[in-house]
Design a binder for these strands. Sequence first.
DNA 1: TTGTGCTTTCAGTTATTTGTGAAACTTGGC
DNA 2: GCCAAGTTTCACAAATAACTGAAAGCACAA
Lengths: 187, 187
Amino acid sequence: MGLTIPKFQDLLKPMKGERDKLAAVREEFVSQWGVMGTQWGINRTMAQIHALLMTAPEAMSTDEVMEALEISRGNAHTNLKELVSWGLVRIVTRRGERKEYFEAEKDVWEIFRRITEQRKRRELDPALQVVERCAEETRGMQTKEGKDFHRQMGELQEFVAFASKMGDRVASLPHGKAMQLAMKLFG
Amino acid sequence: MGLTIPKFQDLLKPMKGERDKLAAVREEFVSQWGVMGTQWGINRTMAQIHALLMTAPEAMSTDEVMEALEISRGNAHTNLKELVSWGLVRIVTRRGERKEYFEAEKDVWEIFRRITEQRKRRELDPALQVVERCAEETRGMQTKEGKDFHRQMGELQEFVAFASKMGDRVASLPHGKAMQLAMKLFG
DNA sequence: TTGTGCTTTCAGTTATTTGTGAAACTTGGC
DNA sequence: GCCAAGTTTCACAAATAACTGAAAGCACAA
């Protein structure tokens, strides 16, 4: 029973199919992540670019992103910068080149931290201001309805402030610590 | 020094102003909560109705909601039902009456629990499916790029599954327990 | 079974968000 | 300075989401 040594060519064969398959799965991921984005209240393109970069073997230029997703320069540019402002993507430059390349944060915990941070800043903090003002403006009211409203605002304020603080704390934990803590809680 | 007994009329006087003030503040709350809603990825009307009912002294009918927010019947109806499906509002009926009235959950922890539950169901679970499929489809790939992609999906899957479980656990805690736990964690 | 009071649906309209493409701007090298 | 490669902005167009109003549906009471 001859132990045949496979030819180099044959070793390469499955890789050809693999590349196609991978490209297809990746495309599916990008597309689905875009759909998800819309449900998350994030725009489709931004989510798609994020998915694309998260699964990119190396940093991509604006033109590469435009081509991969078949979108305009303006659109690519706006959303890349938005991702940068969320801290989910960073700009890298190659020396000797003027072009900017974009690279996504790939560590899931880090991604989670950044998103938590931004959502807190964009969703919780403004809400807090609103309820604070409403609570303040109704302080000391005499009627039952006034008191009820004031109490409701007070409870809301307390809770949102609390959630906000929790967000900060959780997001400031390093990956390892966080998991450790979570395990202890919910084993 | 005559201890004057205030007339009934005079006792009532500040209440008049209070009512107006309260109505104004409440309107502001409803309006602002609506703006917030759009940023949260929830539609404005739904958020406004929620704010309105949260601060309503008693259950309101569709017509009352329509009038308060100056919106159409269809719009009011759709969003009220949507709020019911989120578990943030419940339908109550008064005996002898055919009309439905709507009443919001007012306990902040309960509101939080319901929102967490729904967001998990609507945002996390579908994401989980996507990454699971992508991880599955690239299992055992040989190329570096295939392996990298597979690992990335694996990490994402693990994390999302974990977050999903955490959501369940947190949302299943009663108010008291949750606070206790949070305090222990973050003093 | 018919009328009445209310709920639900939906085709068409309106508002809002997102995307395009080209022009304006910036920056560094010659 | 002036060109070239690249980035940024923005008026307008396209796509999507939300809302309206009216008609259809339903269920109970007479």
